[in-house]
Structures are given as structure tokens and as C-alpha cells.
């Protein structure tokens, strides 16, 4: 076994949104994209970081006395939260100490360097649930493909234990690297954010040519099953025009199934903890059920299987 390591920020058991059956999802840290609506902003940076949860903070400022880097500062007003300079924190080797310094567990270290073995030990705990439910393991992020070697080894181990493997990916990765990992991937849940390259760049920081081309190749050149996932973000990509374009593209390359995920604001709190501004703005609301159904029907009109949220029952059209 190699001593390959990757930064994992969470391993979540009983994941029921990330593929068939009961699954365990491994969240990798680090993402080449920076989507404005990202629900896991703590996963974007490639390094481990600390996150401060204001609701738990008792304002004892013990953290301040423990920090040797001068990264924590007193608030400007009485009753305010300690202010963290994350540009220092991400490079700090004493994050563990920082976490332990907080009696009320308001400081969390996100991201842990783990070996494939360590991750496997956790995954195998739930093997009976995978077996019974037809579930398995999903890698997510961040972007799992920023750790291609690690994911490949992990998936080889999974397949050796007859565990179904799924990958949630943005697809922004060189094909040569991608295809090596796909050999051991049973299912990809493939994010398509926008069909227009320019708008895509505006929303995520990168253009979409590589992403679209990669999915085309997955369908035509590999035996990996692919499902398109579209986060429906009001005002960003939720136009009928974009949905028609996506459906057209999906149909053309031979995709059978599309999941549309309504935007939610649950990640907003994390931005505060990380001390960054919420880029999408706080006014954007989740799309209505009616709107989601309209979009679903657009995809169905192309003969695609389409589910809202990926777990909608009774849909096999």
C-alpha cells in the first residue's frame, strides 16, 4: 500500500443524495472552480483551514492567546467575534492546537491528510449497508479529480472489496488523467453549470469546453455510467434557453439521465465562518417547486430521464 495522502475535509456516512442506495461520501478539499453559489466554500482551498462558528463562540478569546502567528484579532466592538486572517491560517501548522484551544468547539479544523488505507477503514464500516441497499462510495469535494492518483487507488481498493464507486465531478480535468481514474469508476455524477462558455467563465472562473468535451468522451469511450447534474441557480443559469441547450447537448452525446438540484443557501453560514463575502449575494432565493417541475419537463421532452434532487421517486420516463 502506498503512503499517498490527500486532504479530506469530511467523510459522510448515510449519504442518500449522491448516487444509488446508501452511500458514504468522501469530500476532498480543493477545487479548480470557484462557483458563486458553492455550498462548501471550505472545500475550495487546497489546504486545510480553520473555520470559526460564530453561533458557538462564547467570546472568551482564548484562541487569541493561543495563536502564535497573530492571525486572530479582537473585534472592533464589544460583543463581536474574533477576526481570523485566513491567509495566515491556511499556512499555519498549528491548526490542531488552534482547534483544541477552543473550549466551546467554535473553531474547527477543516481538512485532514489521510492515506487510502485510513479512508478505506472508514468506508468498510458501512459495507453491509452498501450491500443491502445497492449503495457504495461517492467521492465529492471540492473536486475529487484534483487528487487523481489518490482517487484511483481508493477506487481500486473499493472494487477489490466489491463496493460500487461513484464520483461527483465538475469535469474540469485533463482527459489523460481523467480516463485513468474512470477505469475504476462505476458512475459519474457530472456537473454541467452552463452551456455558454463566457457565462460559464463568469460564474465559475473557467470556461466549459474541456468539461463538455470530457463528458462526450466518457459516454463514447468508457464503460462508466454518467448522469448529468445541474444546480439550478436563479438568475445565473436557470433560463429555459440554457436548459434547452443542455438537454440538446445531453441527448446528442448519449446521456440518459439528468438530475436537477434546486439552489439552496445552506452554505451561507460557512462563508461567514471563513470570513469571506457570499459572492452570489444574500437576496437569491431557492427556485420554487413549480419552476423545478417546468425545468424537469423540458428535459423530459427530450426523452431524458429527469429527477429533481436526484432522489425523486417514481420517475422512469
Amino acid at each position: 500500500m502506498s503512503d499517498l495522502k490527500a486532504i479530506i475535509f469530511n467523510i459522510q456516512g448515510f449519504s442518500i443524495q449522491d448516487g444509488p442506495g446508501i452511500r458514504t461520501t468522501v469530500f476532498f478539499k480543493g477545487c479548480p472552480l470557484s462557483c458563486k453559489w458553492c455550498a462548501n466554500p471550505e472545500s475550495q482551498v487546497f489546504k486545510s483551514d480553520i473555520i470559526h462558528v460564530p453561533t458557538k463562540c462564547t467570546h472568551c478569546f482564548r484562541c487569541l492567546s493561543f495563536c502564535t502567528k497573530g492571525a486572530v484579532k479582537l473585534p472592533d466592538e464589544i460583543g463581536g467575534n474574533p477576526i481570523f486572517d485566513h491567509s495566515i491560517c491556511v499556512n499555519c501548522e498549528d491548526q490542531d492546537m488552534c482547534e483544541h484551544s477552543c473550549y466551546s468547539a467554535a473553531i474547527e479544523k477543516v481538512g485532514k491528510n489521510m492515506t487510502v488505507d485510513e479512508v478505506m477503514d472508514i468506508l468498510l464500516d458501512d459495507e453491509p449497508f452498501f450491500r443491502k441497499s445497492g449503495g457504495g462510495v461517492t467521492v465529492s469535494g471540492g473536486e475529487p479529480m484534483v487528487h487523481p492518483e489518490f482517487v484511483k487507488e481508493l477506487f481500486i481498493e473499493c472494487q477489490d472489496n466489491y463496493i460500487h464507486t461513484a464520483m461527483e465531478t465538475c469535469g474540469y480535468v485533463a482527459w489523460d488523467v481523467f480516463k485513468e481514474v474512470l477505469k475504476y469508476t462505476d458512475l459519474v455524477l457530472y456537473d454541467i453549470k452552463h452551456m455558454d462558455p463566457e457565462i460559464h467563465k463568469e460564474l465559475t472562473g473557467v470556461t466549459n469546453e474541456v468539461i463538455l468535451e470530457n463528458l462526450r468522451k466518457i459516454v463514447s469511450e468508457t464503460s462508466t455510467e454518467a448522469i448529468i447534474r445541474i444546480p439550478v441557480i436563479p438568475g445565473a443559469n436557470d433560463t429555459n434557453e440554457n436548459m434547452h441547450a443542455t438537454a440538446q447537448y445531453a441527448k446528442e452525446i448519449g446521456i440518459r439521465e439528468v438530475h436537477i438540484l434546486p439552489y439552496h443557501r445552506m452554505g451561507m453560514g460557512k462563508y461567514i465562518g471563513l470570513g469571506i463575502e457570499y459572492p452570489l449575494g444574500e437576496s437569491v432565493e431557492s427556485p420554487s417547486n413549480e419552476r423545478m417541475e417546468t425545468i424537469r419537463d423540458i428535459f423530459r421532452s427530450y426523452g431524458l430521464i429527469c429527477k429533481i434532487g436526484g432522489t425523486e421517486k417514481g420517475d422512469s420516463k
Binding site: E127, P128, R131, D160, N161, Y162, I163
Partner: peptide, 10 residues
């Protein structure tokens, strides 16, 4: 028994 791993049964 039901706790046998799939790997072993394969």
C-alpha cells in the same frame, strides 16, 4: 451469515 462481506462471498 448476513455479516459475511461481499468480497468473501465473491
Amino acid at each position: 451469515h448476513n455479516k459475511l462481506s461481499h468480497k468473501f462471498l465473491v
